[in-house]
Amino acid sequence: MPDFIFSSARPSLSKWRDYTLAQAASFVAKNGTVIVCAVSQPYLPFLNNWLISISRQKHQDKVLVIAEDYATLYKVNERWPGHAVLVPPAPDAQTAHKFGSQVKPLKHSHALPAPGKKGRTYICSCMIFLRPTTGAKLVMKKWIEELQVQPWSKAKKSNDQPAFNWALNKTAGGVDLYLLPQAAFPTGGLYFKNLTWVQETKGMHVIIHNNYITGFEKKIKRFRDVGLWLVDDHALESPLGRV
């Protein structure tokens, strides 16, 4: 790894442009585990909110932020050196995408559900646990191929989730995969709208996805309403501090 990255001389932030994914993964990996998230500059407060929870579980050192723009790359590495990397080219300014994912009952099957009207499933790709197996690598390879078939453009605002579902459907017969349990990883469409379900599954929630709503202010308000917007009072628990 280049000496400048972790020297005490505080090199120019632009030096992080030369920081590679392999270097970053090697730096943050602990016991063969890396926790990866992709973040663009407008969502830094949400990254910080999440990092507080991760820090409380003592897993923050395993986090690698895939920066979607140079502002995020520089800000994270300024506050938390080595924990952000950008895989060029940096995409254009991010646009919020709408994509509905299927909500399952409390004790749903771990098998893939039947395809929808477009011939594919509607599984959310926002929380994935992978082991470095041949099957997992096959799914990732197929996902990349599907993304390349329908790249994002201003005219056609495609996103990664349909491509992910096509990849799942096309590899399902040869890959060992399961849906994460809904009780532990609820969607925003379930957690924030079904108080009865929340009470029935109390103590089982691991990660709550603040989706099925658009707009930063609306997402923040919804977190605040249920006591999950931690950055107001606990920002110093995050490796980034106040951003």
Rank of each mutant, 00 (worst) to 15 (best):
Q199K: 15
H205Q: 15
Y191W: 13
P186S: 07
L177M: 15
E200T: 09
W197H: 05
G189A: 10
F192G: 10
T187K: 02
Y191H: 12
N194D: 15
G188Y: 12
G188W: 10
K202R: 13
M204D: 06
M204F: 05
F185Q: 02
L180C: 01
L195E: 15
Y178S: 08
P186T: 09
H205F: 13
L195M: 09
T196N: 12
W197Q: 04
V198R: 15
Y191Q: 06
A183L: 02
K202E: 13
L179I: 01
A183G: 03
L180I: 00
T201N: 12
F185P: 04
G189S: 09
H205W: 07
T196Q: 13
A183C: 03
Y191L: 08
Q182S: 10
T201D: 03
A184V: 00
L190V: 14
P186Q: 10
T196W: 05
T201A: 13
Q182T: 14
Q182W: 01
V198T: 15
D176K: 14
K202V: 08
K202S: 12
H205N: 12
W197K: 03
L190M: 13
A184I: 00
F192A: 10
G188R: 07
T201H: 04
D176M: 11
G203Y: 10
T201P: 02
L195I: 06
N194V: 05
F185C: 05
P181L: 01
A183H: 04
A183R: 08
A184G: 13
T187S: 15
Y191M: 07
D176Y: 01
P186D: 10
H205T: 11
G189H: 06
F192R: 11
V198S: 12
K202Y: 10
